[in-house]
């Protein structure tokens, strides 16, 4: 099996209530897929299906990755273990000897900004953001080839957020890590993802797909802001989040011409079919 996550026609229902319908998704090694959508549309359900925590009821899900790691929507640290031991949990399960796994856990913990004091404390003594960073460190410590993350940075301030974005991109460059992340922050999705999937609710389905051509590590701030702004104007996105539909198209904002991106076939603006990357000013 290739190192990839392949999902075709996936559906899921809790009892009689259908929460996911006809989901198609490809995630090859080294790529990032970001999933955005309104609350309750089934994002976490999809992630749990990928993690193997729910059984597939309809469609197919093939996971060819060998060492997946999951970061849940809640930190889910074991309350009777110190932060350091929590981070080392996955390594312990792999049978890494105590000295080495604690050293590695400490290093990963420091890389997400947890100091010695925090590493020695029990989880309830940490702030919410520290707990979620510990949960991220627990996932990264495994050196996974697939990382499934459910709103990983939502409890963090913007400084920490961008620090951890950089850390994630570094990890990805170093280990060829595939990432499936859920986020409520459109800008974060645009900053990190290669593919951005917008979901709508009732039942949960993918209504819009954006391929971002520039590699995430080379994406500049201006590009991120503009893509995000343009995405927010998109009818499918507005409809999914129940936003006011965009005002009638005035082409270009502030002297910049917005060009459609790959796979963005039904974009709101009628720009020429120039398939270069990103934007031109």
């Amino acid at each position: 099996m290739t190192r990839a996550l392949a999902i075709h026609g996936l559906g899921h229902a809790y009892a009689l209530r259908t929460v996911l319908e006809d989901i198609d998704l490809e995630l090859p090694a080294g790529r990032t897929v970001a999933l955005v959508g309104p609350s309750g549309c089934g994002k976490t359900t999809l992630l749990h299906l990928c993690a193997g925590l729910l059984t597939v009821q309809k469609g197919t899900l093939e996971n060819g990755f060998l060492r997946p790691a999951v970061m849940f929507q809640q930190p889910r640290l074991l309350p009777w273990k110190t932060t350091r031991d929590n981070i080392a949990l996955g390594l312990k399960a792999l049978g890494v000897p105590a000295g080495e796994r604690l050293a590695r856990a400490g290093a990963v913990g420091r890389s997400v900004g947890l100091d010695e004091l925090a590493l020695g404390q029990f989880p309830h003594a940490l702030s919410g953001g520290m707990q979620s960073r510990a949960a991220l460190a627990r996932a990264l410590a495994l050196a996974p080839d697939l990382l499934l993350m459910d709103e990983p940075f939502s409890a963090l301030d913007i400084g920490l957020k961008s620090q951890l974005h950089r850390l994630l991109l570094e990890h990805q460059a170093a280990h060829g890590l595939a990432v499936l992340m859920i986020t409520h922050d459109l800008m974060e999705a645009v900053r990190l993802a290669d593919t951005l999937l917008v979901m709508a609710a009732e039942p949960g389905r993918i209504v819009h797909r954006v391929e971002l051509a520039t590699p995430a590590r080379r994406r500049g701030d201006a590009e991120v802001y503009q893509t995000t702004a343009r995405l927010l104007q998109h009818p499918a996105v507005c409809a999914s989040f129940g936003l006011e539909p965009p005002a009638p198209a005035e082409n270009g904002t502030g002297g910049c011409t917005v060009l459609p991106l790959h796979g963005d076939s039904d974009a709101g603006c009628a720009a020429p079919a120039l398939r270069k990357k990103g934007f031109s000013c």
Binding site: H48, A51, G52, L53, P68, A69, V70, F72, Q74, R76, L78, W80, K81, L89, G90, K92, A93, L94, R138, L142
Partner: peptide, 25 residues
């Protein structure tokens, strides 16, 4: 149940499930 899911995705062996998850609780 949330912690049990953590044990599943981090592939804790039976021994660890007993000593690191069930017994402390």
């Amino acid at each position: 149940g949330h912690l049990r899911e953590v044990a599943t995705v981090y592939r804790l062996p039976l021994r660890m499930k007993l000593f690191d998850l069930y017994l402390p609780h």
